[in-house]
Amino acid sequence: MKTITLKTAKIHQVLEQLQTTFAGKLTTDAKEHILEIDNPIGKGIIKGISFKGGISYMEFDMEFTEDIAMVASSPDHTPICFAYCSQGHFMHSFGTNGEKHELENFQTGIITSKKSQDNLLYFEKDMRLKMILILVSPTSRSANGNHLSEELQKLFFKNDKAQNFAYVGSYNLKVAERVRQLNSIDETGIARRLMVEGLVHLILALEIQQHSDDLKKTDLQESSLTKNEMEVVRELSLFVNNYPEKQLSVTYLCKKGGLSPSKLQEGFKLMHGTTVTDYIRDVRVQLAENLIKTTDMNISEVVYSIGFISRSYFSKIFKAKYNCSPKEYKDKQRNFAISA
């Protein structure tokens, strides 16, 4: 097993240390640090970015060729770490002899530790790992403008002091959907940074809510779906996004994924908070809005290209979502282009 020791909590320095260990190409775009690795040690990408309010974000999409143990020692101000694994799994322990906690795909986790405590993350060789870490650095109560950090300290610190604490939560498909949205951001520069920051805050909120719901043991978190079935739901969601023009239905998706209608609906409700039919409709409407804005297609061409068969029905749901008709929206886009 290869052991890596990280001697800093600052994201840009962490990425620099990882580059020293793994080699690879390290670049920066709008303060987001990106390490691309493709060598005998492993292949993939590690990203990191810091935001205001003491929040940092790291993303791993890696496959290592040998077992890895990553050691990070808690600084004077112990961060609260929110983790999520969307593919593969990893383990954590406090110190080399501490009990190991495993985080599987679709599971949330929260970790914090006492001062000067070594935290170890274990990554298995020959396994595709996709995980994110959101670090919230605590501040003194007198610090201005960091109410989030203060509230998290109340939740996870005892008497304002961090203790060794590791929580592995229930399976959460809503976070998986937000991670997918993060990975699908095509923008660069400041636009990408703002989009990433918004989604990171949303993921953080979902993880905190997950912890709260697990403590209350609410019925909302009880699911009859297995991990494999949840993976099927995620893949079917991607299929809808990639092929919205197909005549999709609950029956078609059940047959494609090998799920019963009840399990399919339960999975979409967990992941998207809506029914299968409503999800398909929303994906189509969003695609239509983009086509109206970015192409010369007329409204009828847009309607039929995304799988709708009724223009009047499409106009109705488009207006309900965007508060204007498709024609009004296209006219506004045309007028804007002329004035520009």
Rank of each mutant, 00 (worst) to 15 (best):
F157K: 00
G258R: 06
N183E: 12
A340M: 12
L270S: 09
G42D: 06
K114Q: 13
L248K: 03
E36R: 13
D76S: 12
I4C: 05
Q210Y: 05
Y313L: 07
Y167N: 04
K316A: 08
A83W: 08
E66T: 15
E124G: 00
N105I: 04
C254E: 01
E177K: 06
N172H: 14
K154W: 01
D214L: 11
S305Q: 02
E102Q: 13
R193Q: 04
S137D: 09
I309D: 08
I41Q: 12
P40Q: 06
S312P: 05
S224D: 09
L121T: 13
E124N: 11
A166Q: 01
V302T: 03
D67K: 11
I110V: 15
V168P: 03
V71Y: 03
K227Y: 14
E151L: 13
D214A: 11
V283I: 15
L155G: 04
D67Y: 02
S212Y: 11
F165V: 00
Y304M: 02
D186K: 15
I299E: 03
S93C: 11
H12S: 14
T8I: 07
F123M: 15
S223F: 09
S170Q: 12
A288Q: 01
C254H: 01
T21H: 13
Q221K: 15
R128D: 12
T295Q: 05
L152W: 01
V179G: 01
E36Q: 14
L121G: 10
Y167K: 02
K47T: 13
V136T: 11
M91E: 11
G145F: 01
L259P: 00
K7G: 09
I80R: 06
E231K: 13
H272L: 13
V240W: 00
L35W: 08
S212V: 14
K154M: 10
S137P: 03
K100N: 08
F156A: 05
L248S: 01
M271S: 14
E102N: 09
G109C: 15
Q17C: 03
G53C: 11
P40S: 01
V233Q: 02
E124R: 13
Q247G: 01
H272E: 10
S140R: 13
N39M: 10
G198R: 09
L199N: 00
Q265D: 07
L236C: 04
L129K: 08
P326Q: 01
A143Q: 12
N172G: 05
I111F: 12
V175D: 03
I208Q: 10
E66M: 08
T8Y: 06
K2S: 07
K269A: 12
Q286H: 13
N241A: 04
M271E: 10
T5Q: 06
N298F: 01
